[in-house]
Design a protein around this nucleic acid. Sequence first.
DNA 1: GTGGTCTAGACCACG
DNA 2: GTGGTCTAGACCACA
Lengths: 134, 134, 134, 134
Amino acid sequence: MWPRPDPKAPLSISAQIRESVLAAIAAGRQRPGDRLPSVRGLAAELLVNPNTVAKVYRDLEREGFLVTRPGSGVDVSEEAAALAMVELRAGLEARARELCEQAERAGFAGVEVLAMIEALLREQGRLQPEGSQR
Amino acid sequence: MWPRPDPKAPLSISAQIRESVLAAIAAGRQRPGDRLPSVRGLAAELLVNPNTVAKVYRDLEREGFLVTRPGSGVDVSEEAAALAMVELRAGLEARARELCEQAERAGFAGVEVLAMIEALLREQGRLQPEGSQR
Amino acid sequence: MWPRPDPKAPLSISAQIRESVLAAIAAGRQRPGDRLPSVRGLAAELLVNPNTVAKVYRDLEREGFLVTRPGSGVDVSEEAAALAMVELRAGLEARARELCEQAERAGFAGVEVLAMIEALLREQGRLQPEGSQR
Amino acid sequence: MWPRPDPKAPLSISAQIRESVLAAIAAGRQRPGDRLPSVRGLAAELLVNPNTVAKVYRDLEREGFLVTRPGSGVDVSEEAAALAMVELRAGLEARARELCEQAERAGFAGVEVLAMIEALLREQGRLQPEGSQR
DNA sequence: GTGGTCTAGACCACG
DNA sequence: GTGGTCTAGACCACA
């Protein structure tokens, strides 16, 4: 159910977990009012230290996605679905912006960047059909 | 002449300096045989710790971009221009790959990623000729 | 009749329930010899885990406010009213002491604290008679 | 220079450290641009685990009081002084509000609360002179 | 040397 | 059982 974070990935383990939770909320697999897996439970499933999950939950609560009820559990907040979509899109845009800036500094033309992305997506099989996901 | 690294940027200071040097070589502003600024001189110009510049030079020499001539300074190597192009392209591709993976995890479709990049490039005025869509 | 504890309040749920019971006794709404609502009944009314109410009753009995008559329910003890006043006053004083210490650490003068409290009480309309200043 | 947090205090250790840092900024003992003690250094001085200090610094950075420069150190941000005053006052007011509400629930009159605070401050010797601190 | 992240495991209050 | 906090100590990239 929950994808295991890859310790060697460029994103930190906690960032990956955070992304998973947000994606689950944005995709409607976790709806406002739902109870999330417990800190210890998710940590066990992801083969990760409970502190790491706790940090993710704490941050997400601070930002309004979750409501933690000590002694009881962690719920998805009412506004979470809307917030999550915004957050994921903003995060992606920020990285895309970085990439464009890096390309400019390195002297690549705009079309070259586009072509590179298109090639990558095609290689991953995410570009043949019209609109497969989401 | 040399762009100042931004301490708050996602790339580390040393990575930014490295990128600047490579871009200068790839773009032909520094040609094989040219003398680079001294470690101390560049550090002063960039308002950066000399250790940081020294590390960049050291790495670049180990990878064959630069040749240190003891007692006389640091020169651009003969093969540097070709190497630099490869390296810059590889770096960009790595980030592009990360971005595509992040997009997939977040549930975005391939076309959405392409559209986002295109919009960004257009917004930065780097896509006037032969726009692909629209 | 009984105020619902607020899960997000700084006081724990059980502490809020305890406070409600003590306030009812101190104010004479529950007199010595009166029968309190059952654990299950009060828990249902407060939308709270019965364990939580049970713990409150248990603590209050241990401290002499309540008397459990096995098989017949929970009664307010004879000395409860007097005890409750003392306890409520002590609790308030403890918090007031914390507040003063926090103010001192933060560098506020004594008069500032007084003024702040007075402003708050006035704002809540709890300070009409004999206002001390102004 | 830095007050040692008391593990038995009602405020958590990290909250106490946070308060100390904010108070130092608000009082002008640490000015915008100043470098704070290192995580490990402050932890050693306070006889506390470095993780605890790191958490405080991280939170304060997120809220805009500090700027951490990895590998270099932690600086007080430009806006910190103004923010700190606001934050400390707001924190105190929040606790004062709690206290007033608790007093109301417990059935105390406004004047009783005021009298209690005044007595406490007097007992701590913080109310005789006109305006001694700050 | 600096901060950042992660693991491991303890203790607490709460439900 | 739940989450929250703290300690201890490892490893990393960075300056």
